[in-house]
Design a protein around this nucleic acid. Structure first.
Length: 580
RNA sequence: GGCCCCGUAGCUCAGCAGGAUAGAGCGACCGCCUCCUAAGCGGUAGGUCACAGGUUCGAAUCCUGUCGGGGCCGCCA
């Protein structure tokens, strides 16, 4: 049940009649039905008459009056006034708002679920960190964002595949293998001599010792080609195991780990490129030197290029290096072609913001290979600055002094980490402040929301002890007519917005909206609660006032359901009581 | 030189595919516990929405340009 879409439907139903002879042509999606900022403008305002006036060839205000009159006949609408350039400001009967409470109690965690996904299949690719070490806090943001978005999309009716693209085919994993070899030599009693490309992290030490235990000194002085493949495989396997555990500690489970290496030597890349070649999107050519960026040893070279400019990119992109081997772009194209062939209706990629220059060519490739049929969104995740003692900690993977995800999770807990990471829009930088995040106060949004939920659980426990039937079925049939106070009304109206918040968050791929909504909901709840301190009649539990108390319990219980549902989308466990 | 993101209150940020007088938290100031969890609540102060044009009945929101911050730009992924 979404009261806003119901009202919206009524409004639209009442539009065609007035314009039937004049061929009403407006885009229904432009009609807004929403709560105005200013409460003096009613409770729900719509611009429908303003938009319709043009095609109906009538004056907006006049048309608005006409529609308003008709809307009044609906038994949910208490008042319909025309204001400004032709807005229709509606006031609903209190019962119409209150009906959201039994609706929530009856549908439980399903309240707000929608079908806008229409069972379409969407592939959400996220993390995809190179398998060269454990995840750090920066990766965690993308991981949490991707998982929360996946949950959100599932909630609105998409069939979601969570996917991790493992970059196990490039030069980086060779460097990794060499670093492991150094550690292996170390385990054999040799001194390690790292170079600039080495991964120096301690986490490779154990792997070196394991390999020493298995192979002794067999590969200590052996030529690289004898051990590189073996070491690379062992290293990637071990690193992916680390990463899998890190994700697990965040409550994330991927459905598919797709290996880049699996694309090589199978003809898949060649097939993909042939598909593009048939569309005249592959050619041999020479790129110009990028202006404004000095490249020491630049010389024009003939390369195999992808005509990404045909699909909106700024320059065409190389898919072969000068020695003829693939660039990273070639397997990437093949990988996305594979996604398309697997039948996804939509693709979403979560990238670090340093990939911003990569999005256009990727979109060009998907558009070309799917003939524009597959929707493709790329969300760029901005930096996380880890703050400790008021200053930013540094993160450098190769130097091995990055802030490991594991440490952060152990310090603050998975729930806190998840919520905090989702309190910013994806394209805004985020400060992760260890001190603030551990604080148990209003400054900490997680606790603020959790506290609201716990308070409700607390009063429900107490009510049960005092003999109330607090089951959802019992509360759903409560007489709610005593809920008249502004704080109670505010909470009800907030909950009524939940379904549309879910939809807008899902449509825009912005899970942070859920987090913001929950903070507002918590604020409404705490406000109501505190009123009970000053005014006895606003206390939720009142001796002897069974009907009144039951109505209030129904109100807050439905709020608890919304909290629980919203936190569930964020992947955060709602807690029952704050006392530890 | 080009491309992408960002610029909203002292600070950190929301603002829902344009809507009416601009929102929250923190910080500042003033109040609220013999009473369900004060880990909370109420109130006051604080903004030419970077700037200049344009589209529109209507712009923080869309378009163009300027300034400022960040990221990226063949043989790393």
């Amino acid at each position: 049940m979404d009261i806003f879409s119901e009202i919206r439907n009524i409004v639209i139903e009442n539009l065609p009649e007035i314009a039937s002879s004049d061929s009403l042509i407006i885009d229904p999606s432009r009609i807004s039905v929403e709560r105005p900022r200013d409460p003096t403008h009613g409770e729900i305002a719509t611009n429908a008459a303003i938009l319709a006036a043009k095609s109906a060839n009538r004056k907006p205000r006049e048309l608005a009056e006409f529609v308003a009159e008709k809307l009044l006949s609906d038994d949910r609408i208490a008042a319909a006034d025309v204001a400004g350039p032709g807005f229709i400001n509606l006031k609903l009967k209190e019962e119409a708002w209150l009906s959201v409470i039994p609706a929530i109690l009856k549908s439980g965690a399903e309240f707000g679920r929608s079908t806008i996904g229409r069972n379409r299949r969407v592939c959400v690719e996220f993390v995809s960190a190179n398998p060269t070490g454990p995840l750090h806090v920066g990766h965690a943001r993308g991981a949490i964002f991707g998982d929360a978005l996946s949950r959100l999309l599932e909630f609105v009716g998409f069939r979601v595949t969570r996917e991790y693209y493992v970059n196990d085919g490039g030069a980086q994993v060779d460097s990794l293998a060499r670093s492991v070899h150094l550690r292996y030599r170390e385990a054999n009693g040799f001194a390690v001599e790292f170079d600039a490309n080495s991964y120096k992290g301690e986490y490779l030490g154990k792997l070196g010792r394991d390999l020493e235990a298995k192979y002794g000194e067999k590969f200590v002085d052996a030529p690289e080609h004898e051990w590189i493949g073996l070491f690379r495989g062992a290293a990637v396997g071990a690193m992916m195991e680390l990463i899998r555990k890190d994700l697990e500690s965040l409550g994330i489970e991927m459905d598919v780990y797709f290996s880049e290496k699996s694309l090589y030597g199978t003809g898949i890349i060649e097939t993909t490129l042939n598909t593009l070649r048939e569309r005249d999107l592959i050619y041999e050519g020479v790129l110009e030197q990028p202006k404004g960026k000095l490249i020491e040893d630049w010389e024009p070279r003939k390369q195999t290029l992808f005509r990404s400019t045909a699909h909106g990119d700024d320059v065409d992109r190389p898919i072969c290096k000068s020695d003829g081997s693939w660039t990273y772009f070639a397997p990437d194209i093949a990988y996305h072609y594979d996604k398309i062939k697997r039948g996804f209706d939509e693709l979403v990629n979560i990238f670090g913001s340093d990939h911003s220059g990569y999005t256009k060519r990727m979109k060009a490739a998907v558009a070309a290979l799917s003939d524009g049929r597959v929707a493709f969104d790329i969300k760029l995740i901005q930096m996380v600055r880890v703050m400790e003692d008021g200053r930013a900690a540094t993160m450098s993977k190769r130097a091995g002094e990055f802030v490991q995800l594991r440490e952060a999770i152990e310090a603050v807990g998975c729930d806190v980490a998840r919520f905090v990471m989702l309190t910013r829009k994806n394209d805004a930088p985020l400060d992760f402040d260890f001190a603030a995040v551990k604080e148990k106060s209003k400054d900490n949004p997680v606790f603020y929301v959790q506290y609201a939920h716990a308070r409700i659980c607390s009063v429900l426990r107490k009510a049960e002890q005092e003999g109330f039937d607090v089951s959802d079925t019992a509360l759903a049939s409560a007489d709610l007519s005593t809920l008249r106070h502004p704080f109670e009304s505010a909470l009800v109206r907030r909950m009524a917005e939940w379904p549309r918040v879910v939809e807008s968050a899902a449509n825009s791929h912005e899970p942070h909206r859920i987090a913001y909504f929950l903070q507002n909901l918590a604020s409404d709840l705490h406000g109501l609660w505190a009123q009970g301190n000053a005014t006895a009649s606003l206390r939720l539990l009142q001796r002897g006032e069974i009907a009144t108390s039951t109505a209030k319990l129904a109100l807050v219980r439905s709020a608890a359901i919304v909290f629980s549902c919203g936190l569930g989308i964020l992947g955060v466990t709602p807690i029952q009581e704050m006392r530890s």
